[in-house]
């Protein structure tokens, strides 16, 4: 790969390219960083390591290829992995807004917190964040055939979690998970803000809390809370195994916690609101 800038280290043996996103401590524009990623992928490199990332947006936008790996050191900007369909992005730091926006496939693993609207309208793929997430995460997620997005947040989640949800799986654990994988339960704050799953008409939200720990008034319109059945447990356990493996957490301890789920009261919440007539 021709080095247009001297911020690139190529490791042919590992088939990887390392790009410094802030050479001389001055962050590069997102267009330049993303173009360098495209160039590396076009030339056949499979692993791209970004260092000193400081808010550059749209990293991994509309990238395909499930064998592509992007490792990000720093804080990627908004819309990380937007429209992405295949690659794995690992973030050693926190994310800004809308990571995994309209994602179709692939994986985003965040060793930190995700901010607002993570997984907006995702149809597939996985987002694991060790820490908290912001407002309106998982809004209008859907699913189709074998595509089923899965979002797991180790910490707590803010208001409108799973708003308009039409499919997929959202999980919040309400834990304070340390870098070494040890964790404690967050006791002082509720696991989720108000309006959980408002407008939900498909998919499942799991909380690592008993039913009675989710106050009725925090549920959104069309959402109900209930205990898990056997199928839910199987599905949840498989996801938790993956999540725990990503952050070196003892999975059995988490799986033994009490869990509840929030689902839709009806698949057709607004079916009877409309009518028509020849005037």
């Amino acid at each position: 790969m021709q080095k247009l800038l001297d911020n690139i280290i190529i490791n042919e043996a590992e088939n990887s390219v390392e790009i410094d996103a802030a050479p001389d401590r001055i962050p590069l524009k997102y267009k330049i960083v993303n173009e360098e990623i495209h160039r590396a992928i076009d030339e056949g490199y499979k692993t791209i390591i970004l260092t000193n990332v400081a808010g550059q947006r749209f990293i991994g936008a509309a990238l395909g290829g499930s064998d592509i790996e992007i490792k990000i050191h720093g804080t990627p900007g908004n819309d990380l992995g937007i429209f992405m369909d295949g690659p794995t992005i690992e973030v050693f730091g926190n994310c800004e807004d809308q990571c995994g926006n309209t994602m179709n496939g692939g994986k985003i693993i965040i060793h930190g917190a995700a901010r607002d609207v993570a997984g907006l309208s995702a149809r597939g793929g996985t987002i694991f964040a060790r820490g908290d997430c912001g407002y309106r995460c998982g809004v209008h997620m859907k699913q189709y055939q074998n595509k089923r997005p899965v979002l797991v947040f180790g910490g707590r989640v803010r208001q409108f979690f799973g708003e308009y949800m039409a499919g997929g799986v959202l999980i919040a654990l309400g834990l304070d998970i340390k870098e070494d994988g040890s964790f404690t339960k967050i006791e002082n704050f509720p696991i989720a803000g108000s309006s959980i799953g408002t407008g939900i008409h498909g998919g499942k939200i799991f909380f690592a809390r008993a039913c009675n720990e989710i106050p009725e008034e925090n549920l959104g319109i069309g959402a109900k809370v209930s205990d898990l059945d056997e199928a839910d447990h199987q599905e949840l356990d498989a996801v938790l195994d993956d999540f725990c493996a990503a952050f070196s957490i003892n999975a059995s301890e988490i799986k033994n916690m009490p869990f509840c789920k929030v689902t839709a009261v009806s698949k057709r919440p607004f079916a009877h609101n409309y009518c028509s007539k020849m005037l």
Partner: peptide, 15 residues
Amino acid sequence: IPKFSDALSPYPHHD
């Protein structure tokens, strides 16, 4: 989207 499921477009774009 799955067959016979409602397709709701939110009023605003949430981003």
